[in-house]
Design a protein around this nucleic acid. Sequence first.
DNA 1: CTCGACTATCTCGCGTGCGATGTAATCGGG
DNA 2: CCCGATTACATCGCACGCGAGATAGTCGAG
Lengths: 170, 170
Amino acid sequence: MDSDANRRRADAPRDDGSGPLAAMLCFDLYAASRSVTSVYRTLLDPLGLTYPQYLVMAVLWRHEESTVRAIVDELRLDYNTVSPLLKRLEANGLLARRRRADDERSVAVTLTEEGRALRERTLHIPDAIGEAMGIDGETVAGLHGVLRTIADSATAYAARASAGTARTAH
Amino acid sequence: MDSDANRRRADAPRDDGSGPLAAMLCFDLYAASRSVTSVYRTLLDPLGLTYPQYLVMAVLWRHEESTVRAIVDELRLDYNTVSPLLKRLEANGLLARRRRADDERSVAVTLTEEGRALRERTLHIPDAIGEAMGIDGETVAGLHGVLRTIADSATAYAARASAGTARTAH
DNA sequence: CTCGACTATCTCGCGTGCGATGTAATCGGG
DNA sequence: CCCGATTACATCGCACGCGAGATAGTCGAG
């Protein structure tokens, strides 16, 4: 009876039929993210870096010195992910960690000479990524805003849901 | 002598400045994908499913019976990811695996009664996801195409790069 | 029929992501 | 000054994601 139910209104923000569409979009997001990471893998493998490791190095190449917390915030990751990641980068001789004097809880992260030098070998990567994605600059700019919106809304929703689960925050 | 060589034609799809922009977009993609997955986590946790497991179940809810290969193709994942995932779903009593009679290499995957029944408890999820993403239906539709383009281009690029690395496939 | 190529699947190892939990340092109210 | 809350960081455990490699089963040329 609803065989022609795929007829949808353009003015409705999100309602009846938009759920399945949004779900498909989530899968697209998931698949696109993995495929882009795989491009990074082909580019970063010769340097002995993974994509998240590259992101951490990029933070340090911008700031020269940082803390674990600053990196966590900038990459929107968690301590449980970043902590071992920094440990591996330190083991590879790319950075150093030491407790801060002014706040013994905090850990300062700095580049080693080797870590600083690695930057030069990554300078071609952004352009290669641009080429690999196969979309024009205008589309890129438009996409940026939408993806930020999605990330912010979804993060807020998840945080709300978790707070609800964590029995009645008094 | 080529100091102003960074001057390019505007009709070139992607060139000089678009690299860094594209790289930022990749991070947006990465962050958005993780945030969306975290929404799924809050919705799927009560059902004892992860997002990839939910995707597999969704395939079976559509097809009733499938093979490992078909699932791998449909989700754009690899055997090494799907194989243990199916094993866990089987251990949880949601599906069954058995070798095919007509082709002993192939493994048929079917739903158990419990797996079929689980579907009802997921019917609210697509709409919840739509709500969580906070974007209108028109944007969703537009995004779908762009994300497919990115995924396809990136996958092709990565495959090309890997083929190049795998010294001269004769 | 035979043998090598191909196919479908599985296992292993490593690096994330992230929930849960632990620990030490700092802060703030009484 | 003291103690409970908060902060910064770490470890543990589990489930991906994927490269590398192993194992059967099937197919096609000769």
